[in-house]
Design a protein around this nucleic acid. Structure first.
Lengths: 141, 141
DNA sequence: ATAAACCCGACTAAAATAGTCAAGTATCAT
DNA sequence: ATGATACTTGACTATTTTAGTCGGGTTTAT
């Protein structure tokens, strides 16, 4: 399983975007400055978010990004999926062909990792971008 | 967050050990053969498990390892902790000093990762080695 | 026209992972 | 006693992943 700064940045950037969303597109430059994330890196991340239709881009001056869905419809699962952050406990891919077919004593823990994955995915499927924005604005009152 | 093959091996090896536990010590060589894990790597892993008092070693011929606690008392948390598998979403350590103190817009997602960690740790704290052994023996009937 | 912004692919330094290797020490069986 | 078995320890290394950087585009508002 992995969960690295790329997905953390993606979530941070989208929360930032969601808060300023509505009027004008938000430029990566602004997000970069506010969140302290490298602009170049943000571009990579948003390229993926756009391909998964989580954001829309507006090119040219005054351009930027806007959310392509309501914040409440964007679940964390979608974000992680977009940036290739596999919520995956390293499994027995190679072994599965020969030995991890239920009969062998290998992969005793096979089911465990499945269970864990489901457990985590549940968490991410329930949590939406809107939840995070709310939590944050509440806290700053 | 990390969850790599080291912890997978640790769990696999301990389930294996638990199943053969009781009579004689189980040698790493046997576990290595049964589970297809490099003997050298297992030695590294068991060295850590021993230091955390999860297993006891018996040296010399006919030696090996035995569980140091009842299987039901060994929770997955303990195992992960022993092999240094931090269940930790990479956090804002460095930033926290200057900016992640509640006032800044950075670390908007700070709480999220805490929540996630707790969620996962719950899972691991409930699951014991015995659970895994049972699940496995049931499945093979 | 020009500057602001997105777009895209290649490159790379550093860290983590998944081991290997070598040289021990302890204990049992004979 | 002595050899074989098995644990003990620490150093080493190849591979992969991560977290970016860099250079060159294209689009569009003003």
């Amino acid at each position: 399983m992995k969960l690295t700064s790329k997905s953390r940045y993606a979530v941070m950037a989208l929360v930032d975007l969601a808060r300023f969303d509505g009027l004008n597109p938000v430029s990566l430059r602004d997000i970069s400055l506010r969140q302290g994330i490298s602009l170049d890196y943000l571009e990579q991340i948003f390229s993926k978010l756009r391909k998964k239709e989580i954001v829309l881009s507006v090119r040219g001056t005054q351009g930027g990004y806007i959310l392509n869905k309501k914040a409440e419809e964007i679940k964390l699962t979608n974000i992680f999926d977009a940036v290739d952050e596999k919520v995956k406990t390293l499994q027995c891919k190679k072994e599965s062909k020969k030995s991890c077919n239920g009969r062998s004593t290998k992969c005793l823990t096979h089911n465990l990792w499945d269970e864990l994955e489901n457990h985590i995915n549940d968490f991410f499927e329930k949590k939406s971008l809107e939840d995070l924005v709310k939590e944050n604005t509440e806290r700053r009152i």
